[in-house]
């Protein structure tokens, strides 16, 4: 009798849970973009929102909560109700890098306070140099840097961004020393190479692509593990000079911890479908980005790998600063 009651109870509960799951989404879903309107992450967020609207049949709105390099908005989502109606269009910096910088208080734990749902897009970096320099390969770049320590200037999209840390990591791996010139946006950093202000950059493909196509800069390599679909002839940094050197920027959807598992699963399904959508793929590729199909587990694994790569470097940077 007791077992019958409890099994009936379980059945009712299960039905209730299933119903709750069927009913989601009941109202408007908010995607928080922790960067300003018009930026790359914002665009990915808006593209995702319009796709999800069709897929889930409820309106999906984008809310920009810019500030502190993505910390403000990401932190806000980590503290919001885990009811399946608030998600964060996260970016690699505020998840895998910045929280581990010395002396940085972000107010959230990127691993414990947020659940990964799916990566939306990835962008690899291209190593581009000033054309007037006699540098034609990654080996040339390292040789030139070693012959002129501290003389080569590199541009980035700003302090503590991935285009900055990528070169820091490169210096640490190759034992070179270069001079960092931060810009406000990645496109400005690339343009500074064209105008001759700086010597090279590890630039996001989205920013570098127009100049590469116009032939105003020389491209040496890409930072993804494999070769880029845009330039199959270009080697990767990993294969040419620094094995294991992989830097990719990603945007991905994350939810507050404790968001019900069925909702995460439904969302993940929708986003995996989006990754295969022809229109979405076309728009991303033209912009210099790639779509990827990731399960929540794959996404979580990637974050762990990245933290393992960046954490020691950040400690090293902090160490040299103190000396």
């Amino acid at each position: 009798m007791k077992t019958l009651v409890s099994s009936m109870l379980a059945l009712v509960l299960a039905a209730g849970a299933a119903q709750a799951q069927d009913a989601w989404p009941k109202r408007t879903i908010t995607l928080v973009v922790p960067y300003g309107a018009g930026g790359y992450t914002d665009l990915i967020g808006r593209m995702t929102a319009s796709y999800l609207e069709k897929e889930l049949g409820k309106s999906v709105v984008v809310e920009n909560r810019a500030g502190g390099g993505g910390i403000v908005g990401t932190g806000a989502v980590s503290r919001s109700a885990p009811d399946g109606y608030t998600f964060c269009v996260c970016s690699v910096g505020a998840i895998s890098v910045v929280p581990f910088a010395q002396g940085q208080k972000v107010g959230y734990d990127p691993v414990k306070d947020l659940i990964p749902v799916s990566i939306l897009s990835t962008i690899s970096q291209a190593v581009v140099v000033k054309k007037s320099l006699p540098i034609n390969s990654m080996a040339d770049l390292v040789a030139h840097a070693k012959a002129n320590p501290g003389k080569l200037n590199y541009g980035s999209s700003g302090l503590a961004g991935l285009t900055h840390y990528a070169v820091e990591l490169f210096q640490s791996r190759t034992g070179t020393k270069m001079n960092h010139i931060p810009y406000k946006t990645g496109a400005q950093g690339v343009l500074a190479i064209v105008s001759g202000e700086v010597d090279f950059a590890f630039a996001n493909m989205t920013d570098a692509l127009p100049q590469i196509e116009a032939g105003t800069v020389r491209t040496l390599a890409v930072t993804s593990l494999g070769r880029s679909p845009y330039f199959p002839d270009l080697p990767s940094v990993h294969e040419s000079i620094s094995p294991g050197f992989v830097v990719e920027t990603w945007n991905g959807l994350m939810a507050p911890a404790k968001t019900p598992e069925p909702i995460i699963r439904r969302m993940s399904e929708a986003l995996m479908k989006m990754a295969e959508d022809v229109e979405v793929k076309k728009a991303m590729i033209k912009a210099g980005a790639n779509t990827v199909k990731t399960t929540p587990d794959q996404y979580a694994k990637q974050i762990q790998d990245e933290i393992a790569q960046w954490k020691p470097l950040l400690a090293e940077i902090a160490g040299t600063k103190q000396q």
Partner: peptide
């Protein structure tokens, strides 16, 4: 900022602003 949004709009439509 407004122009930045326009760059975004172009990118979404597959037009990459640049020298070409």
């Amino acid at each position: 900022a407004v122009m930045a949004l326009m760059v975004g709009a172009m990118t979404l439509h597959g037009i990459v602003p640049g020298p070409q």
